[in-house]
Design a binder for these strands. Structure first.
Length: 479
RNA sequence: CGGGACAUGGCUCAGCUUGGUAGAGCGCUUCGCUUGGGACGAAGAGGUCGCAGGUUCAAAUCCUGCUGUCCCGACCA
């Protein structure tokens, strides 16, 4: 419990932090993890925020079953090709071989479309905008806590629209919702971009992504939003009668983010001590440590602690007080620092006399004694805002420092073989580049960013040609 | 799925080369003494050495297989 986090240069920062901060633990099942209360509370915090955003944009929650008939998956050719290898399949139940095998959902496109085809018949039924919070399973070769586990929690939105235009708007709207969530709540800056054909979702016409940069220089796909076109509608015969009385297939989207976001927080915000949580997603924003003395009357100190807690809570700040005796405050300090709690208040007998507390902020590990209790609430509230802002700014600066424009493969090699980070380039679309990236650098085109920065006359990284047809791309090694 | 490393009390690890039936530190329990950044002393509890085989009079130690974890690749949210 009190083991210290390994040095920042350790190659296993992710698991060290996840274990030491008590976010998760390994399960007896390969590739799966147990999400512990501190980790699950972060997920609940993300859920609460995102769920509201999803509802505010006109979606409703529903729930579809865990098991999907295997035949459903096979209805969409590209989809089955993309997912079949990583599906867990139920072949037996009730002591008998099943006549039809069930796939443990790797995503719910197929079963949801099966239902959509029953529910949609008129343009008056559209748009149909659903979301579900669920677990999914993908049998991965190599798993890592939060970033890639065989089972993970996520939300998947699924919508049907009368026109492709409207579906495209939905796709863009939701990827922007994700950007908002990542930047303004998780304090993780992201690039919105389009995936290349080889990287897009199996069965989609187009995939939009939010790409974040982790502190180790690797990129992380943190969320995706797909334009499914009419691929699933055709496979499942999801049709509607238009206002012109014509039978048409619906246009669909799907979009999701997962518990990987907790991995993004871990790998986006940490130091040599451990996790650093943005105040807005921290299970509690302030921890109060009363300095307790054994064999003495601590009631005045404890009362003050609870009083401060109550005062802060009135201002909408979430507070935990750790009143355990028998455990020294030093151990508690360390525990909450490892867990990433943004602000710590320490109150002891001496503070009581002077009407003050000691305050510690996790992001920059600064400590200040003698903070007056008068106006403490406002001070803490502002401090939390400042920490939230600082984390985002710090991550933005880090990303900027670790993004280099590259004109050719040699310049690219320098970036990818040194500190990592994003390489920004122009590309003529030749898939040869993706082959080179994969084989020589274990890297990939993360996206074609919507917000471009390079001048029109910047040359293609592969051919050196200058053309208005060339697209801007972000290249990186990725998780 | 390939390459490497590892698996010994709750945690971190020693012991394995050279086989003789298990240790340390931390944590835990009790008592005392302490107490504003991981205290100290004393006495205790706790392990069929990842699992399954094999070799041997005897296996934590040698051999084989399996499982899991970590790192590096291929695959992917």
């Amino acid at each position: 419990m009190t083991t210290k986090t390994k040095e920042a240069n350790s190659e296993s920062i992710l698991s060290d932090i996840a274990i030491n901060a008590e976010l998760a633990d390994y399960s007896p099942v390969k590739g799966c993890m147990v999400i512990r209360p501190h980790g699950y509370a972060i997920w609940e915090s993300i859920q609460k925020t995102l769920d509201k955003m999803i509802k505010d944009t006109g979606h409703e929650n529903a729930y579809f079953p865990l098991l999907v008939p295997e035949s459903f998956l096979q209805k969409e050719a590209e989809h089955v090709e993309g997912f079949a290898p990583e599906c867990a399949v139920v072949t037996q139940a009730g002591g008998k071989e099943l006549t039809e095998k069930y796939v443990v959902r790797p995503t719910s496109e197929t079963i949801i479309n099966h239902m959509f085809s029953k529910w949609v018949s008129s343009y008056r039924d559209l748009p149909l905008k659903l979301n579900q919070w669920a677990n999914v399973m993908r049998w991965e070769m190599r798993t890592r806590l939060f970033l890639r586990t065989s089972e993970f929690l996520w939300q998947e939105g699924h919508t049907c629209h009368a026109t492709h235009e409207e579906a495209k708007e939905e796709v863009i709207q939701m990827i922007n919702v994700y950007k908002d969530l990542l930047e303004n709540y998780l304090a993780v800056p992201v690039h919105i971009g389009e995936k290349t054909d080889s990287e897009k979702f199996a069965g989609a016409l187009d995939t939009f992504t939010i790409e974040a940069l982790m502190r180790d220089g690797k990129a992380l796909q943190a969320g995706t939003s797909h334009d499914l076109g009419q691929n699933f509608a055709k496979a499942f015969d999801t049709t509607f009668t238009s206002s012109e009385n014509k039978l048409e297939h619906v246009w669909q989207t799907s979009w999701g983010v997962s518990t990987r976001l907790i991995g993004a927080i871990i790998m986006g915000h940490h130091d040599e001590v451990g996790l650093i949580l943005p105040p807005k997603v921290s299970p509690y924003q302030v921890v109060i440590i009363p300095i307790l003395k054994k064999n003495m009357d601590n009631s005045a100190v404890l009362d003050k602690g609870y009083e401060i807690k109550s005062d802060l809570e009135k201002l909408g700040i979430s507070v935990k007080i750790d009143a355990r005796d028998q455990i020294s405050q030093g151990i508690k300090f360390n525990e909450y620092e490892q867990k990433g709690i943004p602000v710590r208040l320490v109150v002891g007998a001496r503070d009581l006399e002077n009407n003050q507390v000691e305050i510690h902020r996790r992001d920059i590990r600064s400590k200040e004694k003698g903070i007056s209790l008068d106006g403490l609430g406002e001070l803490v509230k502002n401090l939390l805002d400042e920490i939230q802002t600082n984390l985002l700014e710090r991550a933005k600066n880090f990303r900027q420092e670790n993004t280099k424009n590259v004109k050719n493969i040699e310049e690219l090699a320098e970036v990818l073989n040194s500190s990592g980070g994003f390489a920004r380039a122009k590309w003529n679309g030749d898939v040869e580049l993706e082959k080179i990236l994969k084989e020589k650098f274990s890297a990939s085109i993360r996206c074609l960013p919507l917000e471009t920065e390079l001048a029109d006359d910047y040359p293609c990284i592969l051919s050196g040609t200058i053309s208005s047809e060339n697209k801007e791309i972000l290249i990186a090694k990725a998780y």
